[in-house]
Design a protein around this nucleic acid. Structure first.
Lengths: 197, 197
DNA sequence: TATTTGACATACGCCGCGTATGCAACTAAA
DNA sequence: TTTAGTTGCATACGCGGCGTATGTCAAATA
């Protein structure tokens, strides 16, 4: 059966991605030994090189997976809000809070850009920026926000969020810092609105 | 003479920092071989370990040096402006543009945080955040900006700036992207003002 | 001048990566 | 069904980089 073989291959890839994701998230990219985490998945570095070319290729695959999950979560958050503006704000807040999760923090915001450069540059991955951009575009079309370059705004917000999360995550009092950051962030976003009531 | 010896030591340290700064800035932290760049400075890894403990320690020293230079530049920029608000805005713009320089980009915004964590957390280095905070504090005292947590605002702005710079630096058309980013950034900052005229 | 300290070099071993090679299972044609 | 070719993965090897332990020589101190 063709299926059998293809399924085995897909399973191998999935196991490698899962093991790498775990290792990168827990120990960091540089500290994660390929021998170690491939062995943990019952495989060897041979399989890794075969499927992903090198360590960076695996990181890329891991990032792609996480990005897809994050995008889905963001879309759910904005869809659940009472109106577009609130949806957008909640989306941003959710973004900050996702960046608090160590796995996302380390892989998406710390090691990813450091190892691969600006990920949002290559087309396959950056669902998150796209999600933010979409929300902003709609708000702009409705005249709800000031006249600002959409992509620029999305990236500035993205940067502020991830940086804030980084700060929070390294804080002595993450809870309190998180509250302060979110409050400040909301205030900053208010500056984008046309008619603040 | 005491001086002689102390000067030699200071010179050795300075040579190591300079060589590392060059190597980290050009090749990146991970790719820079300690053997290579110490040899380039006419020294060996022995000197490095003696003075800085390890590779991270050297990175720390390099970052400290660059941070001081950046802080001085920012202070000059804001001092040269016609008023506080303009000074603040120009400071932010200058921050983005400094982050365009490959050395600052790689060392301060890419490898630094990746290797050492949130640098602005440990006290010795974060002149830049402090400079931004000072400006914001004064503006707030004058009632020129909305009621927002100063430290939070400084960090959000810092994050947006560095991210914008990262984006610009990786862009196909850095010039144009830079203009767009700066314009958007100004618009975002306007949202902080109390009486926009 | 004898002794000690400290600045730096040298030497060694380990680990992690990348590549070259090997092998067994599967596929496809004869 | 046999056989030739392909593919998924493991094994084997070499290299370079890092950290440490040790050595050495000049300056500082007495």
């Amino acid at each position: 059966m063709r299926r059998q073989r293809h399924d085995m291959i897909a399973e191998t890839r999935a196991k490698l991605i899962a093991a790498a994701r775990q290792a990168f998230g827990a120990a960091g990219y540089a500290e994660a030994s390929m021998d170690d985490f491939t062995a943990g998945a019952g495989l060897t570095r041979g399989a890794l090189y075969h499927h992903f070319g090198d360590k960076k290729g695996l990181l890329q695959a891991v990032i792609h997976q996480i990005d897809a999950e994050m995008t889905a979560r963001l879309n759910r958050v904005s869809a659940a809000a009472p109106n577009r503006w609130e949806g957008f704000v909640e989306e941003c807040v959710a973004y900050i809070q996702m960046a608090l999760e160590p796995e996302i923090q380390r892989i998406m915001f710390r090691d990813g850009p450091a190892v691969l450069g600006d990920i949002s540059q290559w087309p396959s991955t950056n669902g998150c920026i796209a999600a933010l951009s979409d929300s902003l575009r709609q708000l702009k079309a409705e005249g709800a926000i000031i006249n600002i370059d959409i992509e620029v705004a999305a990236r500035l917000i993205n940067g502020a969020s991830s940086h804030a999360a980084f700060w929070i995550a390294n804080s002595d009092t993450p809870e309190e810092t998180s509250r302060r950051a979110v409050d400040g962030f909301r205030a900053l976003l208010e500056g984008l609105r046309v008619d603040k009531k």
